[in-house]
Computed example of a mutant assay.
Amino acid sequence: MEPRGVDAYGYFEREGSLGRVQEAFAPVVAAARALVADAYGPRLHSAYLYGSVPRGTACPGRSDLDLLLALHHEPADEDRDAAEVLARTLDEEFPQIDGAGVLLYGRARLLSEQERYDMGWFLACLCTPLLGPDLAEELPRYRPDPVLARETNGDLAALLPRWRARLDEAAAPGDVRRLSRGIARHLVRTGLMLVMPRWGGWTSDLPESAEVFARYYPQRAAQMRAAAAVALEPVSDPSVPRALVDDLGPWLAEEYTARLGTKTPR
């Protein structure tokens, strides 16, 4: 499998565009643009889409809508409250999405040295401009190198106990489904990031990510493929995400730290 997602010089190509949004999701994107502008007004610097909708790979009724909002200031309680209302409104009004999520960051933090190889990279390479000036113009170009891999997903060991606690608290099947999807997605992304510097490319496609990982770790290929399946079709059986957290997770965290190191504390 040849590396992709980078240009001829090895730099990331920005994935997604408004031109790739499928017809079924165009009304959702239009509503999101209007709701964001109305909710945040002059507090908003810029807004971005990310995930399957701007990549043009979303499945009606199954995919969620993901937004990143850059504010002129660090998010306050009123900003977080507005984000919850925004996400709930979109989810309730549009059956073609299965949930909506809103990430909030201050402009200065997104451009900070601390976030240069984490949220800065995420915005510049994986997010599609929706409103306002594009902060990617103030960020460097990126390559799939070990520094990027360490600073994006090098904190898996710290996440595992939090996931276990959340699984213990999850009671409703819907809660377990959301957790299973989030946990599985994160593990597959971490698996890809682990091998990304050796592969030299990038993909947001979860089954493809599992296959790239499998080339380097065939002994864990079946588990990673299973995680990719859960990420696409979340389950309500808590034993499934629990098995991922208790077996694949610790091994992946240990291997990640051994090869790439630990993410710089925030």
Rank of each mutant, 00 (worst) to 15 (best):
L194P: 06
A136D: 01
N153R: 14
P161Q: 13
P144C: 11
A172R: 14
G174C: 02
L130Y: 02
P129A: 10
L206P: 04
A124I: 07
L135R: 04
P173V: 08
E169N: 05
M193P: 00
P133Y: 07
L135K: 08
G201N: 05
G174W: 07
S112D: 09
R177K: 15
Q114E: 15
E138W: 09
Y142R: 07
L159K: 14
P173F: 11
R150G: 05
D205P: 04
W121T: 03
G182N: 12
Q114F: 12
R164C: 08
L167K: 07
M119T: 09
L139V: 09
M193K: 11
P146V: 12
A100N: 08
A172W: 11
G106T: 07
R164Y: 06
A171P: 01
V102I: 10
G200M: 06
D145C: 06
H186L: 00
W199P: 02
L156H: 13
G191N: 11
E151L: 05
Y105P: 00
R143H: 06
R162E: 15
R181S: 00
P207N: 06
A100G: 05
G191C: 09
P146C: 13
A100M: 02
R109F: 15
E208N: 01
R150S: 07
L110P: 02
L123S: 01
G99N: 07
A124L: 08
R164S: 14
M196N: 04
R198C: 04
V176G: 00
T152A: 06
T190N: 05
T152C: 11
L135F: 10
R164F: 07
